[in-house]
Design a protein around this nucleic acid. Structure first.
Length: 593
RNA sequence: GCGCCCGUAGCUCAAUGGAUAGAGCAUUUGACUACGGAUCAAAAGGUUGGAUGUUCGAGUCAUCCCGGGCGCGCCA
C-alpha cells in the first residue's frame, strides 16, 4: 500500500546522498532508455557499497537488452563528478561509492539544519488519528498500551513532517452498560463513588456493578430503565453520567500526563458525541438506496463479506427495535471526520481483531460517497501483547493486566537499576531518570516490533541496557552529552578549530556514521509510509550502534584539532538525531543516566 | 465451513522482488588505571513451516497444504 502523499516532498533541504544520487542518475537512465520510457534508478543502501542502484535490470528487460550492457551505458552517461563513483556489479547492479568531500559537505549542511535533514510534505493533509479509546468507568489494560503508544508516536511523526494532526480519543462513554453503572453510582452514593473512582478504582466499580446486574433482576430492571432515561436526555441522569465521565477522564488524563502522551480533554471525541448524527446516518444511507431490512434490522450489505452460512454479511445500522449500534456510530464518526473536521486521512489505531468490522464500515462509507478520494481511511492494526507462555498477557489472577500497574512497575524497576548503577547521583535525579528510562523502555518495547504481529512482553529484555532497547539508546545519548560537556570545558581554554577544508581521510567508522546520520529523513518517511514506528526504532538502534563503534575506534577530545572538530560535529549530530528520534517516539532522552 | 493475520538462528526480533537472509540476547574467545566497560571487536549458530508456480532473481508475489491466533448479524 503506497502512500502517495508521503512520497512527494518539498526539497528545501536534501541531505540524503542516496536521494541526490538517485536524482542525478535519473537523466542517465532516461538517456539510455530513449523515448519517454520512465525508469526509476532505484537507489538503496547496500552491504557491498555505500549504495546500489538496480534499475538497470528493469530497464534491460524493457529494452530487451543484456542487463550488464545497459548498466554500463547508464554509468557512461551518468555525471556524478565530485559526488560519487559508480561500478557495475553482479547481474547489472550499479554500486555507488560516495566521495569523501561530498559526504563532508552534506554533513556540514545537516548540522546547521534545524529539521535534521527531514523534509516536510508539500501538501500537508488534515489527519485524524483515532487512538487510545478507553472505556469510561473501566480500567485501562495492557491492550490500551499499544493503541496509546503507537497512536501517540504517529501523531508526533505526522506533525513533524508538516501534516495537521487532529488527535481523537474515541472513549467508550455511551451504550447499555451505563444503565447499570449509573444505578450503581446511585447505590454507592456520589461522594463514596467519587472517592473510589478518583483514586483509580475503576475495575472495582465496574465489577461491582456487573455483579449486581448479573445477580439481581430488580437491578437489571433499574439499569434498563436508566438506559432509556439516559438516551431520552433526562437531565438528572445526564448529570450522573457526566460525573462518571469526568471522574474517569481525570484518572485517564493523569495517566497520560505521567507517561507523556499528548491526549487531553480537548481531544475527547467519545461515542456520545455522535448521538445526534445517528438518525442522519441512517437517513442518508436510505436516501442513497443502500438500506435493506433484514431480520427486522436496517442494514447495509457491502459486497464481499459472508457469515457462517455463506450468506451476505450485513453492517447493522439500526437494530430491531430501533436502537443504533457501534456500526452506526462508527459511520457517524467517518462522516464527522470528513465533513466537519475536513480530514483527508483517517487513521484508526485499533486492534487487529476489528479489521473486518472496520473494513465494512469503510466500504459502506465509500458506497455512500462519504469516503471519497482524496479522503481515505486506514486501519493501523496491531497484534496482542503476549506473556512468556505465548498467550495473551494476563495477571496472576487471570485478569487483563492493568495499564497503570505496568507503568508503575516499569518505573520502579528502572529506578532500582539506575540507583544500583549510578549511586552517586542525587536521589531526585535518580527518580527522574528512572521514570524516563522505565517509561521509555515500556514504550520502546511496544514500538520496536512490527505492529501487526503479536509481541512477547518481557521485563528483563525491555529494561536491559544492551540490545534494541530504549535504555541502550538513552545511554548512547547520555554518553555523547557527557563527551560534549567535557569538550565544551576544554574549548573554553583552546578555541575549536574549523572542520572545513580538506581534512584527513575518513576512517571506516566515521564514514559509516555519516551515512547513517544522513538517512534520518529516509527513516522518518519510511516509517510513515507504512505507519510503522518500528522502522524508526530500527534506524535509531543502527545509528546508536554505528556511534558506539565509532566511539571505540575514534578518540574525540584527544584527536588533533581538525579531526577533533569533525568528530565533535559527529557527536553533536548523533545526539541531536537520537534525541529527536526518541522524542518522536514519545521517549525522553536524559542528559546523564 | 468461510475470511483475515502470523510462522525467519536455541530465544526475542529485522529484512520497500535484488548479490552470500541481518541484529540483539544467550554461548565461546578477545579488549579495561575508561573522552562513561551500562561498552566494543570477533566466532559459532538458517532447507526463512512444507510443496508447486510466476520471475533474470522469491523470506517477500500466486495457488495448495501444515501449524498458531483472531473474526464471522442486532456487545463495543
Amino acid at each position: 500500500m503506497s502512500n502517495e502523499w508521503v512520497h512527494e516532498y518539498d526539497r528545501p533541504f536534501m541531505a540524503d546522498p542516496l536521494v541526490i544520487v538517485e536524482e542525478l542518475l535519473a537523466p542517465a537512465f532516461a538517456a539510455v532508455a530513449g523515448g519517454d520510457m520512465a525508469v526509476d534508478p532505484v537507489v538503496r543502501p547496500s552491504d557491498r557499497a555505500d549504495a546500489q542502484a538496480n534499475g538497470a535490470l528493469a530497464l534491460a528487460k524493457q529494452l530487451g537488452r543484456k542487463p550488464r550492457e545497459v548498466a554500463d551505458d547508464v554509468v557512461a552517461a551518468a555525471v556524478l563528478t565530485g559526488k560519487a563513483t559508480l561500478e557495475v556489479a553482479g547481474p547489472g547492479f550499479i554500486n555507488v561509492t560516495f566521495d569523501e568531500g561530498f559526504l563532508a559537505e552534506q554533513l556540514a549542511a545537516l548540522t546547521t539544519d534545524d529539521r535534521l535533514g527531514v523534509r516536510s510534505v508539500p501538501n500537508p493533509q488534515r489527519v485524524v488519528v483515532d487512538y487510545s479509546a478507553p472505556n469510561i468507568a473501566k480500567e485501562m489494560h495492557i491492550g490500551h498500551l499499544r493503541t496509546t503508544v503507537i497512536g501517540d508516536a504517529l501523531v508526533r511523526i505526522l506533525g513533524f513532517v508538516g501534516h495537521t494532526v487532529i488527535r481523537e480519543n474515541h472513549v467508550g462513554d455511551w451504550g447499555t452498560p451505563f444503565g447499570m453503572l449509573i444505578e450503581h453510582l446511585i447505590d454507592l452514593g456520589e461522594t463514596e463513588a467519587a472517592a473510589g473512582l478518583s483514586v483509580g478504582d475503576l475495575d472495582g466499580f465496574y465489577k461491582q456493578a456487573r455483579a449486581k446486574f448479573d445477580s439481581s433482576e430488580t437491578f437489571q430492571d433499574r439499569a434498563r430503565k436508566r438506559v432509556v432515561l439516559l438516551q431520552g436526555g433526562d437531565p438528572e441522569t445526564l448529570r450522573l453520567w457526566r460525573l462518571l465521565v469526568d471522574l474517569s477522564m481525570k484518572y485517564f488524563n493523569r495517566l497520560y500526563r505521567k507517561i507523556g502522551v499528548l491526549l487531553t480533554d480537548d481531544d475527547l471525541a467519545g461515542e456520545s458525541m455522535y448521538n445526534d448524527l445517528l438518525p442522519e446516518v441512517v437517513e442518508r444511507l436510505r436516501a442513497a438506496g443502500l438500506l435493506q431490512q433484514s431480520d427486522g434490522a436496517e442494514v447495509v450489505f457491502p459486497p464481499g463479506y459472508t457469515n457462517r452460512e455463506g450468506e451476505p454479511l450485513p453492517l447493522i445500522v439500526q437494530k430491531r427495535g430501533g436502537g443504533f449500534n457501534y456500526g452506526t456510530s462508527d459511520l457517524a464518526c467517518v462522516l464527522d471526520r470528513v465533513e466537519r473536521v475536513k480530514a483527508t486521512l483517517l487513521l484508526y489505531v485499533v486492534g487487529a481483531p476489528q479489521s473486518q468490522h472496520l473494513a465494512m464500515v469503510f466500504d459502506v462509507a465509500a458506497m455512500a460517497g462519504w469516503l471519497q478520494p482524496p479522503a481515505r481511511a486506514v486501519h493501523v492494526a496491531f497484534g496482542n501483547v503476549l506473556g512468556s507462555d505465548r498467550k495473551m498477557l494476563k495477571s496472576r489472577e487471570g485478569e487483563p493486566v492493568r495499564f497503570v500497574d505496568v507503568v508503575d512497575e516499569a518505573i520502579e524497576r528502572a529506578t532500582a537499576s539506575v540507583r544500583e548503577k549510578n549511586p552517586d547521583l542525587p536521589g531526585d535525579e535518580q527518580t527522574d531518570i528512572g521514570r524516563m528510562v522505565g517509561i521509555g523502555a515500556l514504550k520502546y518495547a511496544d514500538l520496536s516490533t512490527d505492529r501487526i504481529k503479536d509481541y512477547v512482553f518481557d521485563w528483563d529484555r525491555m529494561l536491559a541496557f544492551e540490545g534494541n532497547t530504549a535504555p541502550y539508546l538513552q545511554y548512547a545519548h547520555a554518553r555523547i552529552r557527557s563527551i560534549l560537556r567535557k569538550g565544551a570545558e576544554a574549548e573554553a581554554q583552546t578555541p575549536r578549530a574549523s572542520a572545513e577544508g580538506s581534512g584527513p581521510t575518513l576512517v571506516a567508522q566515521e564514514r559509516e556514521l555519516i551515512l547513517q546520520l544522513l538517512q534520518f529523513d529516509a527513516a522518518i518517511h519510511d516509517t510513515l509510509d507504512r505507519y510503522s514506528p518500528h522502522r524508526l526504532c530500527t534506524y535509531l538502534f543502527d545509528l546508536a550502534q554505528s556511534f558506539t563503534s565509532f566511539y571505540e575506534a575514534c578518540p574525540v577530545l584527544k584527536a588533533e584539532p581538525r579531526t577533533r572538530a569533525l568528530r565533535i560535529r559527529l557527536c553533536e549530530q548523533t545526539a541531536r538525531v537520537l534525541a529527536q528520534g526518541l522524542d518522536l517516539l514519545g521517549i525522553e532522552a536524559p542528559e546523564r543516566m
